[in-house]
Design a protein around this nucleic acid. Structure first.
Lengths: 344, 344
DNA sequence: TTGTACGCGTTATCAC
DNA sequence: GTGATAACGCGTACAA
């Protein structure tokens, strides 16, 4: 902890002729000292150039004020933006964050959790998808997951169903003849599945012709481009002359789809309406700004941390009452209309 | 540190009839025990469900294995990608990271540094630009900065001069009549200034007509778009019919510039060549993939952590030899040719 | 190879 | 309002 001996409460105590206890109180309950004595100690701190040591405090009172985070990566804008907002809650809650990049590797993530536990984190935020919530719940630690399978733990998710419904509703209102939703095949337990359900429910309610294309189209740009090219060709043949409303599962894909069309036709053809999901930067920076469903990332982050803080606070009571059922919070997404859905 | 008493070395010692010391050795120097005894202890750990406590270890041996990071934000892809790569070095070096979002607020960042110091971080990585390196160097702590003013501290930077030179060289080779560089007015002490210098040096060497446009064009999409629109109009009038090579200071701007042209002409006119900087996702996802200068973010991150680790290791020796001069490492950028510079 | 005794810097519990 | 003393859990001389 540094070569040269640190100045400790002991040194301050000697210097001021108080006891360690009083010095401690100066920090944790200053009002219990006379103003006079407070000033004496304050001066001593400066004279001796005291630096506080929170590690020692942790050992003594058990409160690390650490929250662990396991996040798959920071390359995807969604994750990095979420981490940004989570870390920014330090200003409100004071918790410090130990962050690990999981890369969706289950064994690695288990190791990271072990390490976090060794540092006595008070709570854990999980954004990766690998470890089942059942296992997480066995950790005996306040946990909140974000946008992943969450049956046995607390979570905060976007209302994906609502998002899918809104996107589809917009396309429907604009008079499309056929609605198309492109997504990866995914489990019903994953929140994002709601987008598919929202799409199909609205189509069925309104009796609108529709097609759901569930296909693993990869995560690299080249892979997505290749698959979407094929899908586009199919659609062109299948629905010639029909007004097509295409709802893609994220903005990257929507952008690729849009670019394919523009490179083919020089502009976005009148018989195509496009909407994406996430409100990531590319949706705004695209050649034609793309309509999308924006997740309220700042709100999700805040709710996640605050839900975690509640659990951590509860745990510090002398008679903690653990949650009987995990709490699942839901944040409404926001429809963002841009130019890819502005034609009639 | 949890309500119910933790299992400690003491408990294991009693259970196994060894001393605490032996248990400690089991973890830190297992070879000094007989295999037999190792197994006895291993079994005890399982029986008692022991969880290690690194906080206590820190207090005892002074090694936190914490590195602090102050980063301006994670909205910009450059920063989030860098953080991703930095955090990923955990696998190689084992250091844990405490991350703070500085938002380029000087006072806030000072508070964050205080907090990090209180947790006895062993080293600090700074990506924000606010606090002068002179002040940072006074912290008496191993520090590495990335891509910022670094006179008094160790740093890792992209070879911006080389990047600017390469970009300009490409445009020159392709026979442009006039070369244009658009950038923000910035201090010479900032590494990114090298881009301007690389541009102007090459132009002067080759005696190529050129113009450097130094203008504060903002960071929001709308602001950048507005300013670039004006700049584009100027260029159109000033250099009609001339083959224009435009080198923008980052890919977001290059993308906006490209989109302005395409929305105006339907395609990229033959008399425009465009190159950006950073190799951020938008350069690949643009309607026409944009040529750019790619920073080797993974390499920069690795060099930064490893430079920090060297300093931290040195400090742990009984007779540490502090650096006389700060070390500045430089990472070569990579020219990435895409379609915006492929025409003749 | 194993054990003893003390230190790390703070907080908590009781006294006064 | 203040102080003495015992935790907190582990590492490390030094001794055996």
């Amino acid at each position: 902890m540094g070569r040269k001996k640190n100045v400790t409460f002991n040194d301050i105590a000697k210097y001021t002729h108080f006891s360690k206890t009083t010095i401690s109180r100066y920090f944790n309950n200053p009002d219990s000292l006379t103003l006079e004595n407070q000033e004496i100690i304050a001066k001593a701190l400066v004279d001796l150039d005291y630096k506080e040591n929170k590690v020692a405090r942790i050992l003594a009172n058990g409160k690390t004020e650490f929250i662990g985070i396991i996040i798959p990566n920071l390359s995807l804008h969604y994750y990095s933006e979420m981490l940004d907002k989570i870390l920014s809650t330090y200003e409100q809650f004071g918790y410090k964050f130990l962050v690990f990049i999981g890369n969706e590797n289950e064994e690695t993530e288990r190791r990271y959790i072990e390490e976090l536990l060794a540092y006595k984190i008070e709570g854990l935020i999980i954004l990766s998808h690998t470890i089942p919530s059942k296992e997480l719940s066995g950790l005996q630690l306040p946990i909140v997951t974000i946008e992943r399978e969450d049956k046995y733990v607390c979570s905060v998710n976007t209302d994906n169903y609502m998002g899918g419904y809104q996107a589809t509703n917009l396309l429907a209102r604009l008079g499309c003849d056929i609605l198309i939703h492109i997504n990866s095949p995914s489990n019903e337990a994953i929140p994002a599945y709601g987008r598919v359900k929202g799409f199909s429910d609205l189509c069925n309610e309104r009796q609108i012709p529709h097609e759901i294309i569930l296909k693993e189209i990869g995560i690299t740009y080249e892979s997505m481009q290749g698959h979407l090219k094929i899908i586009l060709n199919d659609l062109e043949h299948k629905y010639t002359k029909k007004k097509k409303g295409v709802f893609l599962s994220n903005d990257s894909q929507a952008n690729i789809f849009l670019n394919l069309l523009i490179r083919k036709y020089g502009s976005l053809p009148d018989d195509y309406l496009i909407i994406g999901f996430d409100d990531s930067p590319v949706s705004r920076e695209a050649i034609i700004p793309i309509s999308t469903i924006g997740q309220q990332i700042d709100k999700i982050a805040y709710e996640a941390v605050s839900l975690l803080v509640e659990q951590m606070d509860e745990r510090k009571k002398r008679r903690p009452v653990p949650l009987k059922e995990p709490i699942h919070k839901v944040v409404t997404p926001i429809l963002i209309r841009r130019e890819t859905t502005e034609k009639m």
